[in-house]
Design a protein around this nucleic acid. Structure first.
Lengths: 234, 234
DNA sequence: ACCTGAACACCGTTCAAGT
DNA sequence: ACCTGAACACCGTTCAAGT
């Protein structure tokens, strides 16, 4: 039986979000309905709407809770101390990311449908961006690298990269809305570089990014093939 | 007004699937419900169930119709004639794939949720596999390459690669069910090689594949960084 | 063989009302 | 401030019935 309203502590946003994450872990994302979630919390469905504005907001929040578990890299290691250390640092970050995503198998698919840049998403992107910039990569190369990793590894949707500057954006698509806050210097540096490079362009050139990722892969594969490939190589 | 049952030609599976694709293109995948689709076809919702067994089957069929548009490569070019031509051939295939996926923006996300290996999916994978094998890549390297491309480029789910052999598979996950038909020699060669290499293993080592993809990317990025990177390089 | 009608068990979300 | 009840407009799917 559900706990009586008198004994149950009042709901908070995190309580709701974490219960939703638990439910998705246990029974899959398609089991996460407002009604089932409310039932699990011993509450009537409408009670949830005090803590999330609608189901989109619930999903945004669930993803935030997952991304909050990502290790944004070892903060004790100063990347500029040893610029050549960035590949290992990136590898560590992404392998720990993968562990989190494996614990929440529904997360990647949900991340792919999000077009909002929540603070948690921005903070994570900023941390990874700093690894590359700190390693001496140019803002331009870092930008492309974030696209390759974002799309192919995390599942970030391309819209997430659109128009991070604070420009007019009157007829922007349904993406996000709010500009990048100023405490994400790496992301801002990349955005500034991109708009300096292609002045008229808002957002990114998806065609170019796709070809970049593809050629990067094919080039690597060709080299593996040319050398005497024998598994496992890594 | 909907056409009268007398004047409307009888529905066929393709008619239903193509109408669903059109609807998804026009109003997004979330607009594709059995009821809205039926309405668009001038028919009562239940009439659709003669042509698709349920909504999963509808989505499978829609993806089949999209994948059927993929160009499986230029069949007039014999890959073994010029083994070094495979990177260009792959590039052409994937760029044409991308054009199709761009025309159906909902497709990538739906593909990611499919775990069935429909004949169209198999035929496409077979064609790409043959490009690599024909270029002289080992079955093992081809296998890894298909994982990298499948996951990161097409959105194929990892389950799609599981256990393609015709082994017992009594307690296989909910994936697929039917073994690979024998007219996909490239896929079978890869599967045979994989199970010879890791005898006990059923399916693939996701951890290993992930590290493979990641290291391939990081290695490529490091080299771009080391050389004097200046965009556009491609 | 193909389609229909009524029904069931679900959804997300509104509004006005309760404490 | 937080939760509830009743209601609305949707879902996918069943079954038995129609032509």
């Amino acid at each position: 039986m559900p706990p009586s309203p008198r004994t149950r502590p009042p709901l908070h946003r995190v309580t709701v979000l974490d219960a939703a994450v638990e439910l998705a872990d246990a029974e899959g994302i398609e089991a996460v309905s407002m009604r089932r979630l409310a039932e699990r919390l011993g509450v009537v469905p409408m009670a949830l709407y005090k803590h999330v504005s609608d189901k989109e907001d619930l999903l945004d929040g669930m993803i935030d809770r997952v991304i909050a578990q990502f290790q944004p890299g070892d903060p004790s290691a100063d990347p500029s101390a040893d610029p050549s250390a960035w590949p290992d640092a990136v590898r560590r970050v992404l392998l720990s990311t993968r562990e989190v995503v494996q614990r929440h198998p529904w997360a990647r698919r949900v991340i792919e449908t999000r077009t909002h840049r929540t603070p948690a998403v921005l903070a994570y992107m900023e941390a990874v961006t700093q690894l590359f910039l700190g390693g001496g990569l140019s803002p331009d190369l870092t930008h492309h690298v974030m696209h390759v990793l974002g799309n192919r590894i995390w599942g970030f949707s391309p819209e997430l990269f659109n128009d991070p500057g604070g420009r007019p954006a009157s007829d922007r698509p349904r993406t996000s809305g709010q500009p990048v806050p100023s405490d994400f210097p790496g992301i801002l540096a990349i955005a500034a570089d991109a708009s300096a490079r292609r002045p008229g362009a808002t957002g990114c050139d998806e065609e170019f990014e796709f070809r970049f990722a593809l050629d990067l892969l094919l080039d690597g594969i060709a080299r593996l093939h040319a050398s005497e490939w024998a598994s496992p190589p890594l």
